[in-house]
Simulated scan of single mutants.
Amino acid sequence: MIDSTAAGIRERLAEHRAGFDVRFAAYFDALAQRPLPCSDFVPECLGLLRDLSLRGGKRLRVALLHEAAGLVTADTPAGLDEAGLSIELLQTHGLVHDDIIDDSPTRRGGPSVHHAYRQRLPNTPHTALGLAVLAGDLAAFLSVQVLLEAKVPAALRLAMAEVQLATGADTVIGQILDLERDFHHLPDRAMLDAVSDHKTARYSVLAPLRLGLLAAGEDIAAHDARLRRYATLVGISGTLRDDYLDLFGDPEVLGKPAGSDLREGRRTYAVCAVLAAATPTERDTVEEALAAPDCPPDTVDAVRRIALRHGVDDRLREDILGTARAAAAEAASWRPHWRADAVAFFEHLPLWGAERTR
């Protein structure tokens, strides 16, 4: 029986993470033993990808993958390990390229791949940039290769690879939409939801669900509509929560200063809600913060006070919880199709996510 309480969900996530991290390290160790060209740069690239990949991460996608297989069977089907590696390698690809786009110096408590190369090659920044791009590309291609090398029937290998290739394309589209969004003064809800769906839901929720069910022998085409509904709702709720915490969360708990979205000029759900509620004078304050990468904590506090004055925090919490409840209701409708105790995990996961503090 799956424990679907908040503590039970945290315990299961930690269990999945611990087991996967051992397999992920072993994958990179084996990769380093493969014949490589006579090169210093290639092993260095693999080392940077290994370091970033193993340096933290909740492994929520890996947990969803295993729990999705559990909807069909209590056993651990072949192909799950490779699917988990594939999901996390695609995540590594996304992190490398996100940090290039955002010019982020750090990631997961260490240097980003781009900045590691810039430190290594300070006199040739164009080469450092090129190597970082190629490192991200390599992680993406490895995410498909690992599936095609899985010791499962050829039809399953192909089906899983098709899922990941489509997911990779959707994620890149999501990144493009994410950049486009910030060129709009006040993006509408449809655009905000499209960014969340493509950049988060499809590869963080939908792909693990599809891959886990495929490995368990399920016909995912028969269930795709319900999987998409659930993934979209979980993605929106999670993105709303991230945006809320960036403005209203406790920096000590988050492990980073508040207001990073403002400093990066990101017109997120939370920032757009403040802009929509603000008076013209207040809106000028928010716009100034969005245009200032080095805006001080006092400016972030001023934007937060504007949000609180207009009840933006309460409306965001209502939106987060309402979307999470809709996701839970969608998962509850799965009971006639899959194992009831496994469905309970997916019912409670969005509600747990709606209350998280980091």
Score class of each variant (00 low, 15 high):
D3C: 06
A6P: 04
I9Q: 00
H16G: 05
H16W: 13
R17E: 09
G19V: 04
F24H: 14
F24T: 01
A25E: 13
Q33P: 02
Q33W: 02
R34W: 07
L36V: 07
P37V: 12
P37M: 06
D40P: 00
P43K: 10
P43R: 11
P43V: 14
G47A: 06
L48D: 00
S53A: 15
R55V: 01
G56M: 09
A68I: 07
A68S: 15
L71S: 04
V72L: 08
T73F: 07
D75L: 14
E82C: 10
E82A: 15
A83Y: 07
I87H: 06
I87N: 03
V96L: 03
I101R: 08
P105C: 04
R107S: 01
R107Q: 04
G109H: 05
G110K: 10
G110I: 03
R118M: 12
P122I: 12
G130K: 09
L131H: 02
L131I: 08
A132M: 01
L134E: 06
G136F: 03
A139G: 08
A140W: 06
L142C: 12
S143F: 14
V146Q: 05
E149P: 02
A150H: 03
L158E: 12
M160H: 06
E162C: 14
Q164D: 01
L165E: 14
A166V: 06
A166M: 11
T167I: 10
V172W: 04
V172I: 15
G174I: 10
Q175C: 03
I176E: 11
R181T: 15
D182E: 15
H185Y: 11
H185G: 15
R189V: 14
A194C: 04
A194K: 15
K199H: 05
Y203I: 05
S204R: 08
P208T: 06
P208I: 07
G212I: 10
E218A: 15
R226D: 11
V234Y: 10
I236S: 05
S237D: 03
L245F: 08
L247F: 01
D250H: 09
P251H: 06
L254V: 09
S260F: 02
S260C: 07
D261G: 14
R263D: 00
R263Y: 00
E264W: 00
G265M: 01
G265Y: 00
A270R: 07
C272E: 01
V274I: 14
P280H: 10
D284G: 15
V286F: 02
L290G: 02
D294G: 00
A302Y: 00
V303Y: 00
L308K: 02
L308W: 01
R309Q: 12
D313G: 09
L316G: 03
G322M: 08
T323Q: 09
A324D: 05
S333C: 12
W334E: 01
A344H: 03
F345S: 02
P350S: 10
A354S: 15
R356W: 10
